[in-house]
Design a protein around this nucleic acid. Structure first.
Lengths: 239, 239
DNA sequence: GTCTATAAGCAGATAGAC
DNA sequence: GTCTATCTGCTTATAGAC
């Protein structure tokens, strides 16, 4: 079995489900179905490990050797599944955008800004809690100039933002929101919620490990929701 | 004044005043004074270029070769002034903390939370505008696990934060602030203001270049101040 | 599909002439 | 103080046996 091989520096060894190591002479007789599932399993495992390494070291700082080592695979296998480091990185970014997009849907065109904004803030906080590494990869990419995300930003994020700007302006006109600059409000929501993922290490150092525990995180989420709603001056239409 | 410094993170290239190449045989006859100023000039120029490269590529992704090239110096000279890449990085982080610290002072123990919080938000926004590369280096360092900043965070930032938490709690007790979680408020201020430096590339892509122009930035600053003050429920004691 | 071995080049850092 | 040349080891990526 590969996990027992002497050639994998064992330090942060990844205990994978099982697939991949099963390579024996029997493989040639395997059905395509089986092969496809090996591919899917190895790919997603590599993607998860890549996300962690890109989060810790940025694109340039990450090495395919380290990613492969974390995945418990030889480096050559990584290049078998992803031809280049950049191709792997793009797949990670694509995955992240899909999650971002799912959270974005919660900011719906409801007539109640309290529900829409509150729901969106909760979804973004939950995403920060559930996938902090992904948030860090995104942050790293933007900090480095967003070279590989121009397409996503311009074709996917920008249209979404513009539709929400219109929505926010309507709420303001209806007196359901204070006269805020819509983009400033959106940036504040992004910045504040993503801070709990991206600046995890700082929060841990300053506020202690407890600050990021499940119960505490939930309380913080409600606190953030309250503060954002107050900042935006949102009120429910029937209140 | 800081604003007039020539060595502020001067984007890319590297047209230095002159020092460095001026090395001729006359050097040996130069006074110590002259040598010291060459050292100071080269050091600060290298620090500025290092800040830019660390911001763009993170610590691991940055190369001393690129930093030296930006500075217009051979790589060996960089190692003459800074023995290791890590030593150079530490100097950059130290410099950044000093700036952070200066801005932190504006959050004074005034009896008026509107003035104290508003002033602090403005100082942080101004820092994001004036030194975005520095903010990016800080962000990168934290995202990567804050390995090299534990000391600064624990010995300098944490005591500051705790004193402000006490202050905020006093304002709340005096009814000058809504009953907010003090740390959540501080994190929101940091996240929102630093977003304008760290996520510059995203803002540029989504809101256009104009969004970061001087006039627009000033308007955004006041918008952010208003929103933070509303989020915290601050009111002046004599109002 | 897996993995060893290796190519070709770039990294951090240093030696030593000037 | 400056700079060319170089050491050592790590980088991405590939070749080719199994």
């Amino acid at each position: 079995m590969r996990d027992d091989d002497t050639d994998t520096p064992a330090a942060n060894l990844a205990v994978r489900p099982s697939a991949g190591q099963a390579a024996t002479k029997a493989d040639k007789a395997d059905k395509p179905r089986r092969k496809a599932s090996i591919r899917a399993s190895n790919e997603s495992h590599l993607l998860a490990c890549a996300e962690a390494v890109f989060a810790e070291r940025g694109f340039e700082g990450a090495s395919t050797a380290l990613i492969a080592e974390r995945a418990g695979l030889p480096k050559a296998n990584l290049h078998y599944y992803f031809p280049t480091k950049l191709a792997l990185y793009w797949r990670v970014l694509d995955d992240l955008f899909e999650e971002w997009n799912a959270a974005a849907d919660t900011f719906d065109a409801s007539s109640d800004p309290v529900a829409a904004i509150g729901g969106y803030v909760r979804a973004k906080m939950e995403l920060s809690r559930r996938r902090p590494l992904g948030s860090k990869v995104w942050a790293n990419e933007i900090i480095s100039g967003a070279t590989h995300m121009q397409d996503i930003l311009l074709k996917r994020v920008k249209p979404w933002m513009e539709s929400r700007v219109t929505l926010i302006e309507r709420w303001i006109a209806e007196g359901l929101l204070a006269p805020v600059e819509p983009k400033t409000l959106l940036f504040m929501i992004w910045a504040t919620t993503q801070h709990y993922a991206d600046f995890e290490a700082q929060i841990r150092a300053l506020a202690g490990k407890r600050a990021l525990s499940a119960a505490s995180f939930e309380a913080t989420t409600e606190e953030v929701v309250k503060m954002i709603l107050r900042a935006s001056g949102a009120r429910s239409p029937n209140a």
